[in-house]
Structures are given as structure tokens and as C-alpha cells.
Amino acid sequence: MVEVQDLWFSYDKKRWVLKGIDMELRRGEKTVLVGSNGSGKTTLFLHLNGLLVPDKGTIKVSGNFLSYTKKALTEVRKRVGIVFQNPDDQIVAPIVFQDVALGPVNLGLSEGEVKKRVKRALNELNIEELRDRKVHELSEGEKKKVAIAGVLAMEPELLVLDEPMSGLDPQSSKDLLTIIDSLCEQNDNMAVLVATHDVELAYEWADRVMVMRDGEIVKSGKPYDVLGDEEVIKSSRLAMPRVLRIYKGIEMAACGNPGVPPRNIEELLKVMRGNYWNARRRMGL
């Protein structure tokens, strides 16, 4: 869907912020980009729909190289929708439906089509009841959903979310994750890319994890392989997900524990209970 090859970029032409990024995003896959603050996640995202122009390297969207003419950019921005970190920067209209309609209206769609898309986007995020509400009265979590709906109304093939959980309380984060999951299910040829420094989230939720450090992608692959790699995690100023750390601990204690590594607390508890009963059996209790 999107292919990035050897991407180099610098804001001030003195210090490289992106240093040769290679990455591929596939349809129907949930990719999480983890990296500490300032590692270049946002900068990378801004390249994906042509908001920044690379100094070197290429970006392919749906098989076509990005070109930076006005017409081509509109086409790309239809395909690649970015939800920015701060919804207050993104939401410009005073009423929810008005903001969600912004993208479709500017694409020149007919009135009926705009209404249809607004309705569908609100429905997919489960916020139909917010439709006529004023944006400034909404909670942070609701604003976030409105911002996502505004992007979704353009029916992108790649949905990019920059730190979607920042500023949300745990329950709202969970709700948001569930909603993103259901979005992926409903549009099974949509790719999702999420930036975060929350390793727990990345480990539990992603199909694929990429770790970014100082403008480079140092490792990418299955969550367990990437986030279980102590060296990579440490050198990127991240922490290993807690579930994984505990699991690795007991795995060693139990001298090898074949099977699927747990991805969340519940699965971890199951493994621990299993170990406990095994141990009891071995001791003949």
C-alpha cells in the first residue's frame, strides 16, 4: 500500500532527522511505530501524504511514486489520512458534523455524498449522538474521535494516527482502541499506522511493530520479536512491556516454556497458573 525507500530528511539542512527510513505498510495490517520523543515519528508521518518533501529517497503510494503537484497531492491525501496529535489543531469548524464534512466538501463531492459520508464516519466511530454538538463542549476523548471521523470521511486507504492516546484517561484509551479495531474489521483493505511511545499498547495490539531511534528504524517485525529484544529496547530509550518482562522471567525460571508468549495480563496469568499446577504435579502434590 505504502512503500518508503531510503528516506532522508532534515529541517535545517544541518542535522538529519530521518536517516534512511525503509518501511512497507500492507493492507489490513495494524502497524505500530514506537519511539521515544524526538525520534522522528511525526516527521516521518508528514512525508506520507506529501506535507514534507524528502531530501532523498522515494515514497510510493498504491504503486505510484509521490509527486508534488497540486493535483497529485490531493489524490494522495485522499488515500492517506493523518490524524494529528492535538485535536484542537485539527478541528476547525464549530459543530461536529461541519468539521467532519470539511474533507468531503473540499474534495468537491455532491451534497448527498457528503451527507452520506458524514453519517457513515460518525457511525463507524460510534458518535452519532455528537453530530450536532459544539466542538468546544466535548471531552478530550470525544474530540479525538471527531478528529478521526473527519479523516475517515475522506475514506482513506491508510489511516495514520499520531500518538492517539496522549491526553486520554485509561478508559477512553481503551474505548478508542476498540473503535480502531472495529474500523480495521469493517474496512479490511485499510492499513493502520499508529505512532506511540507506549510499548504496552504496541505489544498487545499491533500486528507489526517498528522501533524508531534517532531517525532510523532499528528493528521491525512481530511484537514479541521486536519488543522482546532487550538490546534494541534499551538503546532506544524504551522499556520492555511489563507482561513480556514477567513472562521472560518465569520462562527462564521454568527452564524453557514452549508455547505462544502472552500478550496481556490475562494471558500471562494463564501461563503462570499453568506453571504453578505443573510444578505442583512434578512435586507429586
Binding site: F84, D89, I95, F97, L102, N106, V114, V151
Partner: peptide, 25 residues
């Protein structure tokens, strides 16, 4: 900074000077 963020967010949604009118509601 804020203005720049806002401009980017608008551009990302293909903003071409049109504000949706209230009739879409």
C-alpha cells in the same frame, strides 16, 4: 507553531477554501 500545525491539518484534509455550511447537518 500552532498556526503551522493547523495549516498542516487543513492541508492534510485537502482544504481548498471551502467551509462546509450548516446545511449538511
Amino acid at each position: 507553531e500552532k498556526a503551522e500545525n493547523m495549516e498542516r491539518a487543513l492541508e492534510a484534509r485537502c482544504y481548498a477554501g471551502k467551509m462546509p455550511s450548516l446545511k449538511f447537518g
